[in-house]
């Protein structure tokens, strides 16, 4: 029973690589980067974080450690507060009028919730890629140059635009049409443009909120390959509904669910392979096996 249930996602992953269990256990997607076994360095630490919309508590008492140069996946059923939590890390939810949060989020030893911290400055170091690609209604070049410009970048913008587009694996597609609208690209290309735009400001952490949910399978795969490439230099936190994606692409998985009070909480976190093949908690097992959610 147990084996059968936990096989489902693994079998899916098998189509993309060698023996899935082996791959997951020994070689996190992307290859040479630090593995989860080595004592990891943590970039972001959430300590007892709770999130509220008005009187409603959406997320309660979350503790998560995000390892450097790794991909951390947040999975869980709809409405369990994954996106809320993600949008708290770069203080994006500060824009929601009734929103407030408690606890601490440490970035390099500084608490992002501290009074003197400016959310704008936080977002310069913690970038974000959204569910639906949202390029600006400007040229491709201007889309990438926007972030560096607002952050007072003094170097050669053309070079930076090119490097960013190359890193986002988009350069070859667009190098002849940098003056065209960012919105004229295909969905997958738009999302890679948004990733290029994000890395152009050289953040330490990139948050991805279901970045592939609006894309076709081919584009999804391209984005996943890109993530594996990007984690050499960046730390990535991704919210995903797609368990296969979490299993394929992430190093660490955090499973969240909703309590009786409809507040989301973390059930279990650990190396992706362990969460998917050998979950410690029944709730996790039910979810990853597809019995719930």
């Amino acid at each position: 029973m147990n084996t059968q249930l936990s096989e489902a996602p693994v079998r899916e992953a098998a189509t993309n690589g060698p023996g899935p269990a082996i791959r997951l256990a020994t070689l996190p997607a992307g290859g040479a980067a630090p593995t989860v076994d080595a004592a990891p360095e943590y970039v972001v630490e959430l300590r007892d974080v709770s999130c509220y919309y008005g009187a409603f508590r959406a997320v309660r008492n979350v503790d998560i450690k995000v390892a450097k140069n790794a991909i951390t996946a947040l999975i869980g059923p709809s409405g369990c507060g994954k996106s809320t939590l993600l949008r708290t890390i770069n203080r994006m939810n500060d824009l929601v009028p009734s929103y407030r949060s408690e606890g601490q989020i440490m970035l390099d030893g500084q608490d992002l919730f501290a009074k003197e911290v400016d959310p704008v400055a936080v977002r310069r170091r913690v970038g974000m890629v959204f569910q639906k690609p949202n390029p600006f209604p400007k040229t491709i070049w201007e889309n990438v140059a926007f972030g560096p410009k607002v952050n007072g970048y003094k170097g050669n913008l053309n070079e930076l635009v090119e490097t960013s587009l190359r890193r986002a694996a988009l350069w070859d597609d667009v190098k002849d049409k940098l003056k065209q609208s960012g919105m004229s690209l295909s969905g997958g290309q738009q999302q890679r443009l948004c990733i290029a735009r994000t890395i152009a400001v050289n953040p330490e952490v990139i948050l991805m909120d279901e970045p592939c949910s609006a894309l076709d399978p081919r584009s999804t795969l391209q984005i996943e390959e890109l993530m594996a490439e990007l984690k050499r230099e960046y730390t990535i936190v991704i919210v995903t509904h797609n368990m296969q994606q979490a299993a394929r692409a992430s190093d660490t998985t955090v499973f969240m669910t909703m309590g009786e009070d409809r507040a989301g909480f973390v059930v279990e976190q650990g190396p992706t392979a362990q969460i998917f093949t050998n979950p410690r908690n029944q709730l996790t097992e039910d979810y990853v096996s597809g019995r719930f959610g």
């Binding site: 970035l107 390099d108 500084q110 992002l112 501290a114 003197e116 911290v117 400016d118 704008v120 400055a121 936080v122 310069r124 170091r125 970048y153 400001v201 050289n202 330490e204």
Partner: peptide, 13 residues
């Protein structure tokens, strides 16, 4: 753009 050069606190211009 090193981390040190980008403090989190900043007075709103």
């Amino acid at each position: 753009m090193t981390t040190a050069a980008r403090p989190l606190t900043r007075h709103r211009p």
